[in-house]
């Protein structure tokens, strides 16, 4: 029964992959080696597609793998398998947390956790920025930081930042247009960036 096996394999990945989406990757490699459901090349394709489509990468990879192995039902079963352990564990953790939320030691622990959480996200942010604004290949071959920087991307990043933040500055708050722009939904900026990426050939192709 391939569907049961799919559910089981992805539930295992969901249970043991801790952290962000790419934490699922080693488990997918392991599944590929043990079951022969897909090759390493196919896996590379799945990662590429998962990274440039909406949705959490781990979920995208499970759906893609499930579809490759067992069609639409396979995609659904693999994804449900992946999220099943999370749902169970988080609901239990949430219950425990609720019971202890007024405990002063738990509060003190969260006082330390929050800046740490911010620090981890800031680090992830910088590595996204490095990939988005810096061309490692050009840097490696030309040995100069000046050739490594993707200038159009940096200009776009600065413009985006200004559009998102100018309207929130005290001196400019009265400017209704700026204030409105800074309150736009993130998807507006994402869509505009995609269009700019296509028009100016940001991907270098």
């Amino acid at each position: 029964m391939i569907y049961l096996q799919l559910f089981y394999e992805f539930a295992k990945a969901g249970l043991f992959a801790i952290g962000g989406g790419l934490a699922t990757l080693p488990f997918l490699q392991d599944i590929s080696v043990r079951t022969g459901w897909y090759t390493a090349d196919q896996l590379a394709d799945m990662i590429a597609v998962s990274e440039c489509t909406p949705g959490p990468i781990g979920v995208n990879m499970s759906t893609y793998t499930g579809y490759t192995v067992g069609g639409i039902l396979g995609a659904v079963v693999a994804t449900l398998g992946l999220i099943f352990p999370s749902i169970v564990i988080i609901i239990i953790v949430a219950k425990i947390l609720k019971a202890f939320q007024d405990n002063k030691y738990v509060k003190a622990a969260f006082y330390g956790l929050r800046p740490a959480s911010t620090g981890l996200i800031a680090a992830a942010c910088l590595s996204v920025g490095q990939i988005a604004l810096f061309n490692q290949g050009a840097f490696d071959s030309l040995k100069s930081v000046f050739f490594g920087i993707r200038y159009p991307a940096v200009i776009l990043a600065v413009i985006l930042w200004l559009l998102m933040n100018l309207g929130t500055f005290k001196a400019l708050k009265k400017n209704k247009v700026l204030a409105k722009i800074s309150k736009l939904h993130p998807v507006v900026f994402l869509a505009a960036s995609a269009v700019i990426g296509i028009i100016f050939g940001f991907g270098g192709v």
């Binding site: 990274e51 440039c52 942010c125 996204v128 920025g129 990939i131 988005a132 604004l133 991307a153 776009l156 990043a157 985006l160 930042w161 998102m164 993130p186 900026f189 994402l190 505009a192 960036s193 995609a194 269009v195 700019i196 990426g197 296509i198 100016f200 050939g201 940001f202 991907g203 270098g204 192709v205």
Partner: peptide
């Protein structure tokens, strides 16, 4: 590829 390279810049700023 081009759209995603643009999107990635925006994701960074967001």
């Amino acid at each position: 590829k081009n759209a995603f390279a643009g999107i990635r810049v925006c994701v960074f700023v967001l």
